[in-house]
């Protein structure tokens, strides 16, 4: 079962020191999950101030210099993991440093139907 862990927190509430410590600890957890064959992908994201949003309106691109929604907590990174079930995903989420400062949203990945190879 694959899950995406979306990490939300208030960007303003992190000091540079905390950010570095968080990065280091997160990398350690990533290495551990990789060794167990449980990590598919993970990365921190640049600040929402760098976000670009796009919509197609009448076949024309409408590009704006902002995130999808202005919120008090912002998406700051993600993990995609492959584990047995939700309880295991929750265990991993509870170890991520940003869980102490914000929210980790856990979403099951929708499995695509098997491609018929002819």
């Amino acid at each position: 079962m694959q899950y995406m862990l979306l990490i939300y927190s208030d960007e303003q509430r992190w000091t540079e020191e905390e950010r570095l410590a968080c990065m280091e600890k997160s990398m350690g957890i990533s290495d551990e999950l990789t060794a167990q064959g449980k990590l598919i992908a993970a990365s921190p994201l640049h600040s929402v101030s760098t976000a670009t949003s796009l919509r197609m309106i009448n076949n024309k691109r409408q590009v704006t210099d902002r995130p999808f929604a202005e919120t008090t907590e912002q998406l700051g990174g993600y993990y995609i993991i492959d584990v047995e079930h939700l309880d295991e995903a929750l265990d991993i989420a509870s170890r991520l440093p940003p869980a102490n400062k914000g929210t980790v949203e856990i979403r099951p990945l929708f499995p695509l139907p098997a491609r018929r190879s002819s």
Partner: peptide, 14 residues
């Protein structure tokens, strides 16, 4: 079903 909540008795720690 979709979030695969396991059908288990929780571990002693939980």
């Amino acid at each position: 079903k979709q979030a695969k909540i396991p059908f288990v008795i929780p571990d002693l720690s939980d």
